[in-house]
Write a protein that binds this DNA or RNA. Structure first.
Length: 255
DNA sequence: GTCCGCATCCCAGTTACATCA
DNA sequence: TTTGATGTAACTGGGATGCGG
């Protein structure tokens, strides 16, 4: 009897769990794992590829086909991988059920496998079928496992990038908020200044000092609230203010 | 040229397991 | 020893695309 046939027999006898669909798929999942069966000694971790996916409902036919296709895809690799996941560490599952066949094992890739996968990922974040098959052979894994690893890796990369972008936007938002507050304060100061000293707006340029750093005009009569530093924009000051607004990382707090 | 079914790939979301504090 | 958090392998379902009939 071929391993697949054994697996099929086992899989069909593994009618466990509550609702059919997912549970049956769980049986299918065990196909991937190096799964010690309760029929065997615990120490003998010879895995039988349980093709119980064939017991899947009609809605899973496509997936089953896919699985079968992928297994056929690289049979040589499969056989090696199925029986020699020894290169990876497959930790015994906490099979708390009596049968012990239906709990999904989780493959832990070895450091070498992970390193090589990472290297390949750095080169290309996607693989064509030939690359996938070759890499799978090299790693002693199934092509499907390599494919899944790349999918998950892409997802992790994307997630990380999203986090970075989020952090950037957060800082950008904080900067803009602060800038907005500052502009509001300046506006209030200018209004107060205009109200108290209308002549200040007609001061000769020589009477005002320009900060060389931020090019703001200082020297206007200080208000009690701020101690001065009222910004009177020069010609084009509106543009500069706008630049402040739209350049959140400009060092506007220098002065 | 268009439609249909199928195969394949990828992604987002989820599940389940292993590990660690 | 137990337990909750975390990382990740593996899965599901669906959309997109290509191809042959």
């Amino acid at each position: 009897m071929e391993p697949e046939e054994v697996g099929l027999a086992l899989g069909l006898s593994l009618g466990h769990g509550s609702s059919g669909h997912h549970q049956l798929i769980k049986g299918q999942q065990s196909t991937w794992s190096s799964q010690p069966c309760a029929l065997m000694e615990p120490s003998l971790s010879l895995s039988l590829p349980a093709k119980d996916s064939l017991a899947a409902p009609v809605s899973n036919i496509a997936a089953v086909k896919r699985e079968l296709r992928m297994e056929e895809d690289d049979e040589a690799t499969d056989n090696k991988a199925l029986y020699s996941v020894a290169s990876s560490s497959v930790v015994a599952a906490a099979a708390d059920d009596d049968e012990g066949c239906n709990s999904r094992k989780k493959l832990r890739l070895s450091k070498e496998q992970s390193a090589l996968l990472e290297d390949r990922f750095k080169e290309h974040s996607t693989l064509n079928p030939k690359q996938k098959a070759a890499l799978a052979r090299q790693l002693n894994l199934r092509p499907r496992q390599v494919e899944v690893w790349f999918q998950n890796r892409r997802a992790r990369t994307k997630l990380k990038q999203t986090e970075v972008d989020c952090e950037l936007l957060k800082r950008c938002c904080e900067t803009l908020t602060e800038e907005n507050r500052r502009l509001h304060r300046e506006l209030q100061q200018l209004r107060a200044l205009n109200h108290a000293h209308p002549a200040a707006f007609f001061m000769p340029a020589a009477a005002l000092s320009i900060c060389p750093s931020c090019e703001r005009i200082a020297g206007a009569p200080a208000t009690a609230a701020t101690g001065g530093a009222a910004t009177v924009t020069k010609a084009g000051g509106a543009g500069r203010a706008a630049a402040h607004l739209f350049s959140p990382f400009a060092n506007s707090a220098a002065c």
